[in-house]
């Protein structure tokens, strides 16, 4: 059998000699091992002050993007909802009225757009399905809550504010397989 690491040891059930039966050398060895760990580098990150670096492909909380003029990209085509394996996305479409051109880029827009964060499995298929570059998964972590209802995120949470754009440049990189 192939060994995965070089640390594996073959178990032998041989009779112990009397020094081994005392167990004291073994206990002493164990104590030495633990005391060595006293001086090792600690694995803990002090979380709120220090955060672990995220991978560029990390999939966290969703964002509904706006374009350069601050208009919502989403056209409520429903492809994201169809592609969602967890069926976490629901939306209502509405037609853009006169005078709303500065709010919505397309003639149809999502009047209601909800993601149930408890159902979502953060697979990123919605992002791949979106033809309008509207939905992206970001490296933000979904905040915790005491109430289940608060986990159904509506447009008020999902759409990025105009003055605080969410940076998704890392996600926009082409990571599709090149043949």
């Amino acid at each position: 059998m192939n060994q995965l690491t070089n640390r594996s040891k073959v178990v032998v059930h041989k009779e112990m000699n009397w020094i081994e039966k005392l167990y004291l050398p073994a206990i002493f060895q164990g104590l030495i091992i633990t005391i060595k760990h006293l001086f090792k580098k600690k694995a803990t990150l002090r979380y709120p002050e220090v955060t672990r670096p995220f991978a560029p492909v990390y999939r966290g909380m969703h964002v509904l993007k706006r374009d350069e003029q601050g208009r919502e990209n989403c056209t409520a085509c429903g492809l994201c909802a169809v592609s969602c394996p967890a069926e976490a996305i629901t939306m209502d479409a509405a037609e853009r009225k006169k005078g709303e051109e500065m709010l919505y880029r397309e003639e149809k827009y999502a009047a209601k757009y909800e993601i149930n964060m408890l159902r979502c499995i953060y697979c990123g298929l919605c992002e791949e399905a979106c033809p309008k570059d509207a939905i992206y998964l970001t490296d933000r972590i979904v905040p915790s809550d005491y109430n289940r209802n608060n986990f159904v995120f509506g447009k008020d949470v999902l759409v990025e504010p105009i003055d605080q754009r969410i940076d998704i440049s890392k996600r926009k990189k082409d990571y599709s397989i090149v043949n």
Binding site: T34, I35, H37, L38, K40, K41, K42, A43, T44, R46
Partner: peptide, 11 residues
């Protein structure tokens, strides 16, 4: 306990 297990412990 924390230090022997490469952790920091209550801080």
């Amino acid at each position: 306990a924390a230090f022997l297990q490469d952790r920091i412990g209550p801080d």
